[in-house]
Design a protein around this nucleic acid. Structure first.
Length: 427
RNA sequence: GCGGGCGUCGCCAAGUGGUUAAGGCAGCGGCUUGUGGCGCCGCCAUUCGGGGGUUCGAAUCCCCUCGCUCGCCCCA
């Protein structure tokens, strides 16, 4: 076997699934457009420092999952592992924020060097929303609502929204100090993974899946207790906002999120039908990030939605939202004059809006009609030298029992057009 | 990075030490040299992910390796 394969964790999306992907993307575009959110496209490759500074040196994503290399100019470059840092960088670089708040969305491939498993690839795709310059709790609610409505419109069932608050950056810093002190005091009783995280990422210890650690943690200081009055108030408003919209949610005090830049509201939308990688959409507030990346202090909230996981859910659904593409006409031809007339005919039909496949194989009519039948086309047009000479084509109804007709191009377009693919009985 | 499962034709799949590697789908050719769907006939893996080894003999046993997959971790 010397044939070449795609890189591990890099997946080809074959024609049988791209229709579903397009449906998801089109639905997302529609929802963003309705919510007055504009698209932004940023490079897949950025200076490594952007992610190191933005996401946090201590996170797993930056620490061990990035595709990083030196380019020919000896600069350290990284394939983007997520979208937010790039969007914020672009907004700062082009002075977007001095023009007022920005409502932006992005989509495309992200790269993380991880062990692939269900719902996790090394190149994967996200669609994300970033509301930059919005501080009000109502913007948190709006951001969540946009994601929730998009998923509902796509027909994804069985989803659960979990929310938490991480408090202000000050709250978080203060709590972090308390927590580290407490963890140090109980170091001996922690599992090895948690011990290693005491300083690197103490908040994640709270989410440990080791039962003994969880039991011990019952006595640890809680983030909720460390929250300032304003932070409490703020979180209450977010919850009330969700309730007012009738969006169901659960409080999850252990929901911490992996990236450093989050503060206040953090949320995840998960599905029980996804296996180990259950998060379909995750996000939160990141009021400190813009400043951290060199901009002026700007509050912001955003989320990212994993398309592979979403498509996985959609393809598990009993009812497929996307019908296979339908062909209106299959053009078969034979003989020098017939073959010469076939492409012009196909082209005119296409210009008239029909979906047309042209058989240029030169095979016998029998073969071509067999392929016409298998193509799923509604009609077949046959052009031999006789038809070409008369300026007509023989139109066959492949899905009904209507008699063959000899028609000129305009007549053919009229008849086929009246029976657009998949609709209605034979003429 | 760490565990578990798996790897026979484009897809599905039988075969689990003995001489020629079932079958189905798809594909190709023919019956039907200008007419599809159905049917019938034929073709389609000197080879079982790759490499070593054991054996008179291996797709079947052993080792290594690659890949896929599920989970841990992490996250979308």
């Amino acid at each position: 076997m010397s044939s070449l394969q795609s890189l591990r964790g890099m997946v080809d999306l074959l024609p049988e699934v791209t229709g579903l992907w397009q449906h998801v993307e089109a639905t997302a575009r529609l929802h963003f457009q309705r919510a007055a959110v504009q698209e932004i496209r940023t490079p897949l490759l950025e200076v490594t420092e952007l992610f190191a500074r933005g996401i946090g040196e201590a996170t797993d994503v930056v620490g061990k999952e990035m595709y990083t290399f030196l380019d020919r100019g000896e600069r350290s470059c990284t394939l983007r592992p997520e979208g937010t840092a790039s969007v914020v960088r672009a907004a700062i670089q082009h002075g977007l924020l001095s023009q007022g708040p920005q409502r932006l969305w992005y989509g495309g491939p992200m790269f993380r060097y991880e062990r692939p498993q269900a719902g996790r690839q090394r190149q994967f795709h996200q669609i994300g929303l970033e509301l930059l310059g919005f501080a009000d709790p109502r913007s948190d609610v709006e951001a969540i609502a946009i994601a929730w409505d998009l998923l509902a419109d796509l027909g994804v069932g069985g989803l659960a929204l979990e929310i938490n608050t991480l408090g202000s950056p000050d709250d978080r810093l203060r709590y972090r100090g308390e927590l580290v002190a407490w963890l140090e005091a109980h170091r001996e009783q922690l599992d090895p993974d948690s011990q290693a995280r005491i300083h690197a990422n103490p908040l994640r210890v709270l989410d440990s899946k080791v039962p003994a650690t969880q039991a011990l943690l019952a006595g640890a200081p809680t983030l909720a207790d460390a929250l300032s009055g304003e932070s409490h108030e703020r979180f209450a408003r977010v919850r009330l906002g969700l309730e007012a919209l009738g969006i169901p949610f659960e409080l999850n005090p252990r929901l911490v999120r992996g990236l450093d830049y989050y503060s206040h509201t953090a949320f995840e939308i998960t599905s029980s039908q996804l296996g180990a990688q259950a998060t379909v959409c995750g996000g939160g507030r990141y009021d400190g990030l813009v400043q951290q990346l060199g901009g002026s202090p700007t509050p912001a909230i955003g989320w990212a939605l994993g398309l592979e996981r979403l498509v996985l859910l959609l393809s598990q659904a009993e009812q497929q939202p996307v019908a296979p593409p339908a062909l209106d006409l299959y053009v078969a031809s034979r003989g020098e004059a017939g073959e010469a007339a076939a492409l012009p005919l196909a082209r005119r039909c296409r210009a008239a809006g029909l979906a047309v496949e042209l058989d240029a194989s030169g095979a016998a009519f029998g073969k071509q009609l067999r392929r016409a039948d298998r193509s799923g086309a509604r009609f077949a047009a046959v052009i031999g030298d006789m038809e070409a000479g008369e300026g007509v084509a023989l139109l066959k109804d492949l899905r009904g029992d209507a008699a063959e007709q000899r028609l000129g191009v305009d007549g053919l377009i009229a008849v086929v057009g009246a029976r657009r693919a998949g609709e209605g009985p034979a003429a």
